[in-house]
């Protein structure tokens, strides 16, 4: 690795947000294309502003790349290498909880999500992870479902409790 490369700042990840923002702005303009002027006005103004800012930023990045002050690396986007695996599993568990909640209901989803996350993140021994998750799930049930009566999808646990009470 040359000294110049070592000193260059990775900006690949910095581009994700402006590019997404610009894409959304373009989609927004497309979505209001046939609408009355009052419905278009602020959106188109904002899209113009956003695209202008993003263009200036891209120019800054391109100039940086040309002068080798910047590089296209992703830098620290994913955090420390040693915990990447456990953190990505945690994120996947979050998505899984979203998919499962309509079937499992609040309590079982919360319990499973907490228990599996604790285990994935390295809580040992297993029984402790499961125990804390169970207490968390039940406290959540008591507060959110039993006391406040939120309309969460009911799962087997909620239906069982309803039948028992």
């Amino acid at each position: 690795m040359t000294e110049k490369q070592a000193a260059s700042k990775p900006v690949g990840a910095d581009l994700i947000l402006p590019v997404c923002a610009a894409l959304y702005a373009l989609y927004y303009v497309w979505s209001v294309w046939d609408f009355p002027a009052e419905a278009q006005f602020s959106g188109i103004m904002l899209a113009g502003l956003l695209l202008l800012l993003v263009t200036i930023y891209l120019i800054r990045v391109l100039r940086g790349l040309a002068s080798a002050r910047y590089s296209m690396g992703f830098g620290d986007l994913f955090g420390p290498r040693e915990s990447r695996r456990s953190r990505s599993v945690f994120f996947c568990l979050m998505l899984a909880a979203l998919v499962l909640v309509p079937w499992l209901g609040f309590t079982l989803t919360t319990f499973s999500f907490l228990a599996s996350s604790f285990i994935a993140l390295g809580v040992r021994p297993f029984w402790r992870a499961v125990q804390i998750a169970a207490v968390g799930g039940l406290v959540g049930w008591f507060f959110f479902i039993f006391l406040l009566g939120t309309h969460f999808p009911k799962g087997p646990f909620e239906l069982l409790v309803e039948a028992l009470i």
Binding site: T107, L108, F111, W127, V130, Q131, I132, A134, V135, G137, L138, G155, P156, F157, L159, L160, V161, E162, A163
Partner: peptide, 24 residues
């Protein structure tokens, strides 16, 4: 006590999972 409470809770949840919904 914590350990017992935890296991009771898990047992209750497990039981709930096995009970079939249509019956209710």
């Amino acid at each position: 006590f914590v350990r017992n409470a935890g296991f009771t809770a898990i047992a209750a949840m497990a039981l709930a999972t096995y009970l079939s919904v249509p019956a209710l």
